[in-house]
Simulated assay, not measured.
Amino acid sequence: MSNAVVTLKKGEGRALKQGGAWIFDNEIASILGAYENGDIVLVRDFDGYPMGRGFINEHSKIRIRMMTRNIDQEIDEAFLRKRVQDAWEYRKKVTDTSSCRLIFGEADFLPGLVVDKFSDVLVVQSLALGIDKMKMTIIRLLEEVLAADGVKIRGVFERSDAKVREQEGMERVKGFLSEPFDTSVEIVENGVHYLVDVKDGQKTGFFLDQKYNRLAVQKLCKDARVLDCFTHTGSFALNAAYAGAKEVIGVDASELGVEQARKNASLNGLENVASFVCEDVFELLPRLEKEGEKFDVVILDPPAFTKSRNSIKNAIKGYREINLRGMKLVKDGGYLCTCSCSHFMDYELFTKTINQAAHNVHKRLRQVEYRTQAPDHPILWAADESYYLKFYIFQVVDEK
């Protein structure tokens, strides 16, 4: 911890004062005292009022990420153990912990750190320099806290290979943080078995945030014909098949994802119900429409079409296009499950875009439910970046 003191400009720090965790470079008036990037510094308002402590990185536009509002709090091992213990106690209350997100960055007051648990394996993603310096201590504490509850971890793998690390002046890295182990890990979620590729799968290997949204889709799928677009490794498709669908088609542009989805189908004995094709969804949907295909349930789970405010217009076009095409493929009275995992495509914009798509194809939507990410990805109010997943289930009816 350094003795450096950061003073904000007058009128700045608005997000911080509302409960957020970030201070941007243009909000800072002065920094007094020596520090190294990644050090903990004291933050004061323009008038000297103490705001708390956080770690600093002059390579990042997010100059400071706050760790505590208490200026007398030492950021030591006892502090980190309490953060880790609190995160685990919360998960035990709100989710199935056999596989879950254990640490969700700012929402667990450990900014820049993500830790996912897949059965008895941890996958770690460190995205900020300050937390990176504490990473090994936090992992050790996490293993100790879990062990005290009888949960033994056999291996830890790092997936800090996200491009955003470069914005922090950090290299992208991945590899074992424990003794090597088989990186194809079997998990069970909602009764469905999956092989998770923690080494080469997307992000940390599997999207745990959709756990209960996949479960919500099950009730729609008995005896149904289902189309699952952007299936990744087959998760929504397999929930549909597990729930008794008569036919499921999963589509993804990634050959690696489709191959994994087929393996997952075999693992569950569902290969005769769920089939997977490697195609571009934007090309496939118009063709299916032309061929007169209809489905009882269409699921749209695309990757984030935008990761910045600058590309939001193109993202809106993409979301409108797939929803419009998806609605056309739903039988009258069938169901559309549609989502966005882009933080920048906020609730209002996503809702408006779906509404425009329905209007364009003369469909009426009856909302069954609106959902967000699973509770092991808690939404911290005032930390907007923690609320990113929007998930709708609609009944689609022709205009009557």
Results as ranks from 00 to 15, higher is better:
residue 205 G to C: 13
residue 215 L to D: 06
residue 49 Y to D: 01
residue 302 P to R: 13
residue 344 F to R: 01
residue 343 H to A: 03
residue 237 A to S: 12
residue 41 V to A: 13
residue 301 D to F: 12
residue 375 P to A: 14
residue 359 H to W: 13
residue 58 E to S: 15
residue 48 G to T: 00
residue 274 A to K: 08
residue 18 Q to E: 10
residue 261 A to L: 11
residue 176 F to R: 11
residue 272 N to W: 07
residue 334 G to Y: 03
residue 130 G to V: 08
residue 305 F to M: 06
residue 177 L to A: 10
residue 267 L to C: 11
residue 30 S to Q: 08
residue 290 K to Y: 06
residue 55 F to L: 02
residue 259 E to D: 03
residue 177 L to H: 01
residue 325 R to Y: 09
residue 124 V to G: 05
residue 242 Y to A: 14
residue 341 C to S: 09
residue 41 V to P: 06
residue 37 N to M: 11
residue 289 E to W: 07
residue 394 F to W: 02
residue 191 G to K: 12
residue 107 A to E: 02
residue 387 Y to Q: 08
residue 316 I to T: 04
residue 397 V to I: 08
residue 68 T to M: 10
residue 238 L to F: 09
residue 71 I to K: 13
residue 129 L to D: 04
residue 267 L to M: 14
residue 180 P to H: 01
residue 97 T to I: 15
residue 111 P to M: 12
residue 276 F to K: 15
residue 389 L to S: 10
residue 365 L to R: 03
residue 166 E to G: 01
residue 91 R to H: 09
residue 121 V to C: 10
residue 24 F to G: 03
residue 331 K to I: 07
residue 15 A to K: 15
residue 344 F to I: 00
residue 373 Q to H: 02
residue 390 K to H: 08
residue 308 S to Q: 05
residue 6 V to C: 05
residue 399 E to R: 10
residue 24 F to N: 02
residue 278 C to Y: 07
residue 238 L to V: 06
residue 299 I to G: 09
residue 101 R to F: 12
residue 339 C to E: 05
residue 339 C to F: 14
residue 126 S to C: 13
residue 307 K to F: 04
residue 347 Y to F: 09
residue 87 A to R: 02
residue 237 A to G: 15
residue 188 V to G: 10
residue 267 L to G: 02
residue 321 E to N: 01
residue 336 L to H: 00
residue 166 E to D: 00
residue 6 V to A: 13
residue 390 K to M: 11
